Computed example of a mutant assay.
Amino acid sequence: MASTMRVQTAIGQRALLITTLAVPLTGWTIHAVSLHRKLAAARKDPLTGLLGRDGYTVKARQNLARYGDSVLVVLVDLDHFKQINDGPGGHAAGDRVLAATATRLTAWAGSRSAAGRLGGDEFAAAVRIGPAHRELRLAQLTQLLAQPVQVEDGVLVDVAASIGAASPDVLGTTDLSVLQRAADAAMYAGKHTGRAVLADRSHAVVPSVNGRRAGRPGTHTLGRAA
């Protein structure tokens, strides 16, 4: 009987020791994961200085949670960008166009908005703009992004961008993935027309993969959409 009690006591002491050690380890694990997420969210695109995909997603969702129906989610895709990269100036010219686009988008969106580079020649912004001013502001963005970019001394490159936008009050949701999917579909609908397109509910049900219109870059990647 005494032997059995000693065994049980020893087992209980070991369990207590393991539990005692596990608690701080678990705490450090949670802290490490949280720190990693914060660092990822703060990381900026080295070429343009805009937020990367993770950072943009975090800030855009914060804006949607704070301002709701007053937020406009905008997607921008540069037209014929491959031709710029393949032109005389090569990738250096393409980089200057990307940097200029980022500067213009930031100036248009304002410091309190979320502006990011999703990858390649794709950009996004979540901006606080009321319904009465959306069409005017989108037209201003279209004109701003269509200005030629100087890629070398005395050398200008013509640029153009396709723009799609979506708003919570029109689509009935503040889900960023849904808004971006609709904005992406609206952008495609207005491709090469020289005008921005504001999504309606029909754009939100366009078939997609990973939150993006089928066939777009990134649709083969598994995981949560930005």
Rank of each mutant, 00 (worst) to 15 (best):
W108L: 07
A226V: 11
G223F: 13
G154T: 10
A93S: 07
V159F: 07
L50Q: 12
Q150R: 03
S3F: 06
A99L: 03
A132C: 07
G172N: 02
G55E: 15
L179A: 13
L98Q: 01
P168Q: 08
T142M: 04
G94C: 03
A189V: 14
R195H: 01
L105R: 05
R43H: 12
M187V: 08
G87T: 05
D79F: 00
A107M: 13
V170F: 00
T101Y: 03
R14D: 13
D45F: 06
R212G: 01
G90L: 04
A2T: 15
A139L: 06
I84F: 11
L176A: 09
Q62H: 03
S113V: 01
H220W: 01
Q83N: 03
G55N: 13
A102S: 11
R213A: 14
L118D: 09
H192R: 04
F81R: 04
H36K: 11
W28L: 15
R224A: 14
L78T: 06
P217L: 14
P131R: 14
V97C: 01
L75G: 02
T106W: 04
R37P: 08
R14G: 13
T9R: 02
A139P: 00
V157K: 06
Y56N: 12
V33A: 05
A60P: 01
A199D: 03
G116E: 12
A115M: 05
D79R: 09
V149E: 06
R117L: 11
T221L: 15
N85C: 07
G94P: 01
